[in-house]
Amino acid sequence: MRHGGTRRALSALALALTATLGVGVSSAAAEAYGDYLTATKIRTGPSTNYTAVGVGYPGHGVVIDYAYSMAQNINGNRQWNHHTNLTTSKVGFSSDYYMDYEGWFWLYL
């Protein structure tokens, strides 16, 4: 089940959890693992208007840590995933349309 919410609400929740759990004490977050479906630009923001910092290719592998769900529409898919390319170490956003993965990560509006 996909989870989402406003950044402000999530930040407030994070603060509450940190206060409850204490700094650096076994907090955890989930991430999704996967790969690119074709040559895919890695950008500094969630649309093709942002600068590309690299290109990911099938076989590189990715770890997705969070995403925006209402960004630029690519073939009916408005989600852009913030991720790390596990071969080139580049970090940035790519359209969800060009990525395949399993797992869970935080989805912001």
């Binding site: 999530l10 700094v23 907090s27 955890a28 977050a29 999704a32 009916g76 869970w104």
Partner: peptide, 25 residues
């Protein structure tokens, strides 16, 4: 049509056990 089926159908994901990641994390 030309829409990404994955964007229309919900993906199944594991249930999270913690809140969103802290800055320290």
């Amino acid at each position: 049509g030309y829409h990404d089926p994955r964007a229309i159908a919900a993906r199944s994901r594991p249930t999270p056990t913690a809140g969103p990641p802290s800055d320290a994390y």
